[in-house]
Computed example of a mutant assay.
Amino acid sequence: MIETAFFYAAGLGTRMRPLTEDRPKPLIELAGKTLLEHAIDPARAAGITKFATNIHYLADQIKEHPATRNFVIFDEREKLLETGGGLKAATAILGVAPLFTMNTDAVWKGENPFQKLDKHWEHSKMDALLLLVPTSKARGYSGKGDFELGGNGEIRRGNGFVYTGCQIIDPSGLSDFEDSVFSTNLYWDRLAQKGRLFGLVYDGLWCDVGKPDSIAIAENMLKEATDV
């Protein structure tokens, strides 16, 4: 089992206003616990032992929250580094071995996403394995998707599948980017050109919790039967 998980928690939460006026989005509550805990709990259940997160907006609230006790905290209050830049900076402490990254604005029900990714990870042929859901099954989401999925598991930009926010990624290639601020999307595009970007379909239930009205959608999803 890959031992490290990095949780993205430095976003500004603009789409979630007014709920984020006095708290960061990861600390919004849903079904009795914070979005951050919804992300962390399956990682702990999967046996992951090393945890890290980045902070920016209302950072002290996340830093002082019980859920992040014993976390490695990367403080981006002076400069928001985006997803790629934040992970690149984190490698100075976390190292460059493959690790999980997880967004903190989604809710899951079904197979543990970390365990599912770990079972299908093949570092010999992939540098990133993204967990996807078909757009037709994505809750709280109205876009056309992020990727197309090939028959061999390789993915490329397109429609049909949504990135869930959870992946295994080899961060060593991030050092090739000279900028300190950049999106992981740029790294994915490079990996896709090399045939090293793969996707895996999640068979459980998933909801994007990016806007206030998504909270009720997610809570109703969690009440559904466990057979999916």
Rank of each mutant, 00 (worst) to 15 (best):
1 M>Q: 11
3 E>W: 08
4 T>G: 01
9 A>Q: 02
12 L>R: 14
13 G>C: 05
14 T>R: 12
19 L>P: 02
19 L>D: 07
20 T>I: 08
23 R>L: 07
23 R>P: 05
26 P>L: 00
26 P>A: 00
29 E>T: 12
29 E>W: 06
33 K>F: 00
34 T>N: 02
35 L>V: 01
36 L>E: 02
38 H>I: 09
39 A>D: 03
40 I>K: 08
41 D>G: 07
45 A>F: 07
46 A>S: 12
46 A>T: 08
48 I>S: 06
49 T>D: 11
49 T>M: 10
49 T>A: 12
50 K>V: 03
53 T>R: 07
54 N>R: 04
55 I>S: 06
56 H>K: 05
56 H>P: 02
59 A>N: 10
60 D>K: 13
61 Q>W: 06
62 I>R: 04
63 K>H: 12
63 K>L: 15
65 H>R: 05
71 F>P: 01
72 V>T: 15
73 I>F: 10
74 F>H: 05
74 F>I: 04
76 E>I: 02
80 L>S: 10
80 L>C: 08
81 L>G: 06
81 L>W: 01
85 G>S: 06
87 L>Y: 03
94 L>E: 09
98 P>N: 09
98 P>E: 04
100 F>C: 07
100 F>I: 03
100 F>W: 05
103 N>G: 08
104 T>F: 03
109 K>E: 00
109 K>M: 00
113 P>F: 09
116 K>W: 06
117 L>S: 03
119 K>E: 14
119 K>W: 11
119 K>M: 13
119 K>V: 10
120 H>K: 13
122 E>V: 11
124 S>T: 14
126 M>R: 00
126 M>H: 00
132 L>I: 02
133 V>Q: 07
135 T>K: 10
137 K>H: 06
138 A>L: 04
139 R>N: 10
139 R>L: 12
142 S>E: 11
143 G>Q: 05
143 G>E: 05
144 K>C: 11
144 K>S: 14
148 E>N: 10
149 L>Q: 11
149 L>T: 09
151 G>Q: 13
155 I>P: 08
155 I>D: 07
156 R>G: 12
158 G>D: 04
161 F>S: 04
162 V>S: 00
163 Y>C: 03
163 Y>H: 08
164 T>K: 04
164 T>G: 07
165 G>W: 01
165 G>D: 01
167 Q>S: 15
169 I>W: 09
170 D>Q: 11
172 S>R: 11
173 G>D: 05
176 D>N: 13
179 D>Q: 15
180 S>H: 14
182 F>Q: 04
186 L>A: 13
186 L>E: 14
187 Y>P: 12
187 Y>I: 09
189 D>R: 15
193 Q>T: 13
193 Q>F: 14
197 L>N: 08
198 F>E: 00
199 G>H: 01
200 L>W: 06
200 L>M: 09
202 Y>S: 05
204 G>H: 01
205 L>S: 00
206 W>C: 06
210 G>K: 09
216 A>D: 13
217 I>W: 03
218 A>S: 07
220 N>Q: 13
224 E>F: 06
225 A>C: 15
226 T>Q: 12
228 V>H: 06
